[in-house]
Deep mutational scan, measured.
Amino acid sequence: MEVVDPQQLGMFTEGELMSVGMDTFIHRIDSTEVIYQPRRKRAKLIGKYLMGDLLGEGSYGKVKEVLDSETLCRRAVKILKKKKLRRIPNGEANVKKEIQLLRRLRHKNVIQLVDVLYNEEKQKMYMVMEYCVCGMQEMLDSVPEKRFPVCQAHGYFCQLIDGLEYLHSQGIVHKDIKPGNLLLTTGGTLKISDLGVAEALHPFAADDTCRTSQGSPAFQPPEIANGLDTFSGFKVDIWSAGVTLYNITTGLYPFEGDNIYKLFENIGKGSYAIPGDCGPPLSDLLKGMLEYEPAKRFSIRQIRQHSWFRKKHPPAEAPVPIPPSPDTKDRWRSMTVVPYLEDLHGADEDEDLFDIEDDIIYTQDFTVPGQVPEEEASHNGQRRGLPKAVCMNGTEAAQLSTKSRAEGRAPNPARKACSASSKIRRLSACKQQ
């Protein structure tokens, strides 16, 4: 084909351009004929944790799935940006308080904090938690009735009371019990989460009196709706648990309003109706937990002794299953770290194939690490110290990083047969305790 000078094309009309061969290198194709290559998922490591896909996002930050490269346990990490926390009232204080509380709590029905990582340079905090497959609110939203069968609701409620009793025994008032803060594992274990607005009572406090509340409006008791200066913290949790039980068994809320002012007005009056299909035992329990006067409201001991709580409820309806993943529609909620794991395991070791967030990740503290002497050669063979940054567990980050890069360049065919977990650990520049 004859090559045409581009400067001469402006002298031709459209018809003349076609005659000189423009149609031979300008093609129009339908979008259905285009085959897009999927974007390669680059592996990203935060300390010893391999990052997966997004699980959810809230006002405080994002939650992603991660894999512990040492234990191969599935975890969830809450990623918090200090810049964003400053824009939220009491944001930083709530996060630090939640970390302090979770560090000393150990119960099967309370979410466990596994690790805390802090990135000084990017001003990011990573709260590594045990993995929960789904939230209770997500399960309720997945069915038209917006409720659980009585047998399933009873099982979840009993676990909620177990976890709540443990928190109260530790002198902690949750203040925000609701389905949105109750998570579930694949085995059906309920976990109380989000202790950001919780309050730890003084060890020598005479009672459970509280003065502040930041919980969700629909789950607040009349004493808070009416603006009382002080109130019983434990009875606030009992009320919120009662509203939660009402919601998961009926699909409704005892109090509603077009806006928060109308909602608080209705809560302050204390008038509500219980659907007739709840039955006398459940209705009596709800009335005891939603008692207007805090002094007359049920205690956890009274809830445990109630006939509806103690009764064994046979399954009359099919239980609400864990819904498919909202993004991938995966009904099994498979591990989202698998594509990243395959990338590390299947590809040659190259620095361009993975990302390490930083050479140094500070753990379990908000301060910069200490310094240790770096050896410097002298005339008599002895070495003197220069400062060298280290990880919180004493690992020399720069030395590990250099060693990792040197190993990656060394030709050794046997290394390709290593397991995925050992490869992740070798790529991680800074081991965590």
Rank of each mutant, 00 (worst) to 15 (best):
T328A: 15
L184V: 06
K287A: 05
L400I: 13
Y131W: 03
F219H: 08
V128P: 00
T32W: 13
E92W: 06
P315S: 11
I303C: 02
H345A: 14
A429K: 12
P280F: 06
C134Q: 03
K262G: 10
M51W: 01
P315Y: 09
I361W: 15
K175A: 05
T402C: 10
P217Y: 12
C132A: 12
L290N: 00
L386R: 12
L282H: 03
A218I: 05
F204V: 09
K329N: 10
Q371A: 14
D207H: 11
H168R: 04
I361A: 12
M127I: 03
K83N: 10
Q112M: 05
D330V: 12
D115W: 03
E407M: 14
S216K: 00
K312W: 13
L101I: 06
E291W: 10
V116E: 13
E199L: 05
C210S: 05
D141T: 00
K388I: 06
T402W: 12
P413V: 11
D208Q: 14
E16F: 11
P387W: 15
S232K: 15
R147S: 04
M51L: 04
V372M: 03
T250K: 01
S142W: 02
V34Y: 06
V95T: 15
L201R: 05
Y131L: 11
K312N: 14
M335G: 13
K84E: 04
A406K: 09
K44Q: 09
V143N: 15
E317R: 14
K311Y: 06
E374V: 04
L344E: 09
E33Y: 08
P326C: 10
P413R: 12
L113C: 08
V150C: 04
P179D: 00
S271W: 02
F204I: 09
V337D: 08
Q371M: 12
H306R: 03
V66C: 12
T402K: 10
E33T: 15
G135C: 13
N90W: 03
Y118K: 03
E342T: 14
D343S: 10
P339M: 15
W332Q: 13
Y362R: 11
T402V: 03
S19K: 13
K329D: 14
G385I: 12
G242C: 00
F309L: 04
Q214P: 03
K262W: 06
Y261F: 02
C210M: 05
P319M: 11
K108P: 10
L101M: 15
V173Q: 12
E351R: 09
D284R: 13
A347F: 11
Q302A: 12
R297W: 00
G61W: 01
I303Y: 00
P294T: 07
D284E: 06
K44G: 02
A429V: 12
L386A: 14
D352Y: 05
I300G: 02
L167S: 01
T209A: 08
Q112I: 13
Q305H: 06
I111R: 08
T250C: 08
P314C: 13
A200P: 10
E291H: 08
I161L: 05
P319W: 02
G288L: 01
M392W: 03
C391L: 13
R405V: 15
S142I: 05
H313I: 12
E256F: 05
L184D: 00
S334A: 05
L182F: 06
E291S: 11
M392P: 15
G163E: 00
K312M: 12
M129S: 03
C73E: 15
R383Q: 13
Y340V: 14
I300R: 00
L72I: 08
D207M: 08
G385H: 14
G408I: 13
D53R: 14
G163H: 00
T395S: 05
M129C: 09
E375A: 07
S69P: 06
G227Q: 09
Y166L: 04
C430F: 12
L102V: 05
E396Q: 08
E16S: 11
L167D: 00
G91Q: 07
A410E: 10
M18W: 04
K403A: 14
E317N: 14
F231Y: 04
R384S: 13
P387Y: 05
Q399E: 12
P369K: 11
K83Y: 07
V133E: 03
R39N: 03
A417H: 04
I356D: 09
S69H: 01
D258L: 02
V143L: 08
A43I: 08
K44N: 06
C158V: 05
A429L: 12
A241S: 04
S422T: 03
I79Y: 00
V3I: 06
L113W: 01
L341D: 14
C151H: 05
S325H: 13
I424S: 11
H168Q: 05
D176Y: 00
Y156A: 01
G233L: 14
E138W: 08
F231R: 09
Q152P: 01
L353I: 08
K178G: 02
E121N: 14
W239K: 01
N380S: 05
T402P: 13
E291N: 05
K64N: 05
V243S: 03
P369F: 09
I356Q: 14
R409C: 09
P179A: 04
E145I: 07
V337S: 03
L290S: 00
R106F: 14
P314E: 13
A377S: 09
A347P: 08
E70I: 13
P6T: 04
G47S: 15
D350R: 15
L252F: 06
G270E: 11
S213T: 06
P314N: 13
L50A: 13
E70Y: 07
I260N: 15
T363Y: 08
I224S: 10
R86T: 15
E357H: 14
Y253D: 04
C278D: 06
P222Q: 03
K44S: 11
S422V: 06
L353H: 11
K388F: 09
R301L: 15
T402G: 07
F298D: 12
G180Q: 15
K235I: 06
A273C: 03
G288I: 00
E375N: 12
E57V: 05
Q364P: 11
K122W: 11
Y362G: 07
R409A: 12
M335V: 11
Q123I: 03
I46H: 14
K287T: 09
K97D: 09
E376P: 10
S169G: 10
L160I: 08
D343V: 08
L102M: 04
